[in-house]
C-alpha cells in the first residue's frame, strides 16, 4: 500500500476489521510512513481514553434473577394491558407473535415437571416462613389495620388463618357475617377515629388492603384467567388440566398464607418479597396455560 491510510482505514486497522490482505498492506505502510504511524498512535491513545470513560464494567455484577423476575412481571403487565384489545380484534397478527414467544411459553412435559418442582419448593418455603413469623411475633401491632381490611376479628390474631379465610369467603359470596361486621366497626372506631366511621360501610364488599405492587399482579392474573376461560375446556387435555389445577391450588394457598402474614407486617420486605414471588409463579403458570388457550382458540 503506497498511499497513506485515510482515517477510516486507519480505524479499521486499529480495530482489526480489515481483510487479511489489507491488514498486512496497512502494517507495511505504517511501518514505513511516519505520518501514518503518528496518526495511528494518536488514534490508539484516543481510543483508550474513550474506552476508559465508557468501558463496560466487568466488575459490576449483573443481577440476573432480579432482572428476570421484574422483566417477567413487566411483560405480564404489558400482556394484561393488551389482552383486552386482543379479545376485541381476534386474530390480529397473533400467530407470528405467539410463534416468536413459544420458547418461553411452551407447556412441555419437562417444563411442567420442573415447574411443579419449583412450585412445591416455593410453597414450602412460603408456608414455613409464614409459620415462623406467626410463632415468632404474636403480632398485636397493626390489629387495626387488619380489622380495617375487613378480614379478621382483632381478638383472634393467633391462629387467625382459618377464620380469615372463612370471613373472606363469606365476603366473596356477598354475604356479610354480622358478627365480624360488628367487631370491625367497633375496633375501627376505636383505633381510627372519625375517618374510620365511614370505613365499615365500604369494607363490607372490599377485599384485603392491596399491598404496593400487588395490584399489577392481580390485574395480570385476572386478564390471564380471562384468556384461559376463552380457550375453553379444549385448552388442556384432562390429565394436564388436573396437574395445572393442582399447581394452581398450591400457589393459591401459598399466596393466601403469605398475604396474611404480609398484611400483619406490611413493612417487612422479606414477606412482601415472598408474596410477590408467589404471585410471579402464578403469573408464569397462568401465562403458559393462557398460551395454550390462545393456540387452541386460533386453531378453531
Amino acid at each position: 500500500m503506497k498511499r497513506c491510510l485515510d482515517e477510516g482505514l486507519l480505524q479499521a486497522y486499529l480495530d482489526g476489521e480489515l481483510s487479511h490482505e489489507q491488514m498486512s498492506e496497512a502494517a507495511a505502510h505504517v511501518a514505513a510512513c511516519e505520518a501514518c504511524a503518528g496518526a495511528l498512535a494518536a488514534a490508539e491513545g484516543e481510543t483508550a481514553f474513550f474506552a476508559a470513560a465508557f468501558a463496560p464494567d466487568d466488575a459490576v455484577s449483573v443481577p440476573t434473577e432480579a432482572l428476570r423476575s421484574r422483566i417477567g412481571a413487566a411483560v405480564a403487565q404489558l400482556e394484561a394491558g393488551t389482552e383486552a384489545n386482543h379479545a376485541r380484534t381476534r386474530g390480529w397478527n397473533f400467530g407470528g407473535f405467539l410463534a416468536s414467544l413459544s420458547g418461553l411459553l411452551n407447556f412441555t412435559p419437562q417444563s411442567a415437571a420442573a415447574f411443579a418442582g419449583l412450585l412445591a419448593v416455593v410453597a414450602l418455603a412460603v408456608i414455613y416462613f409464614a409459620v415462623q413469623r406467626q410463632t415468632g411475633k404474636p403480632s398485636s401491632f397493626n390489629r387495626g389495620e387488619i380489622a380495617r381490611a375487613g378480614n379478621t376479628p382483632p381478638v383472634a390474631i393467633p391462629g387467625a388463618g382459618k377464620q380469615t379465610d372463612e370471613v373472606k369467603n363469606a365476603n366473596e359470596d356477598g354475604t356479610q357475617p354480622p358478627k365480624a361486621g360488628n367487631v370491625i366497626s367497633v375496633s375501627a372506631r376505636r383505633s381510627r377515629g372519625i375517618r374510620a366511621e365511614r370505613k365499615p360501610v365500604t369494607l363490607q364488599t372490599k377485599g384485603p388492603e392491596v399491598l404496593p405492587g400487588e395490584k399489577e399482579y392481580q390485574t395480570a392474573i385476572a386478564s390471564l384467567e380471562e384468556t384461559i376461560k376463552l380457550g375453553g375446556d379444549a385448552t388442556l387435555r384432562p390429565a394436564v388440566r388436573v396437574e395445572y389445577e393442582r399447581d394452581l391450588a398450591i400457589l393459591d394457598s401459598a399466596i393466601r398464607e403469605t398475604r396474611r402474614v404480609a398484611a400483619q407486617n406490611p413493612k417487612d420486605k422479606d414477606v412482601t418479597g415472598f408474596l410477590m414471588s408467589a404471585y410471579q409463579s402464578k403469573v408464569e403458570l397462568l401465562t403458559k396455560v393462557a398460551d395454550q388457550a390462545q393456540v387452541a382458540a386460533l386453531g378453531r
Binding site: S102, L104, F107, P109, R237, A239, V240, A296
Partner: peptide
C-alpha cells in the same frame, strides 16, 4: 398420553432462526 397431548399442541412453525424471548 398427557405428554403426547402437550407435544401435539405445540405448533410446528415455532422454532425458526429468531430466538425466543426467553
Amino acid at each position: 398420553r398427557a405428554v403426547e397431548a402437550l407435544v401435539d399442541s405445540v405448533p410446528e412453525t415455532v422454532h425458526t432462526a429468531a430466538p425466543s424471548f426467553d
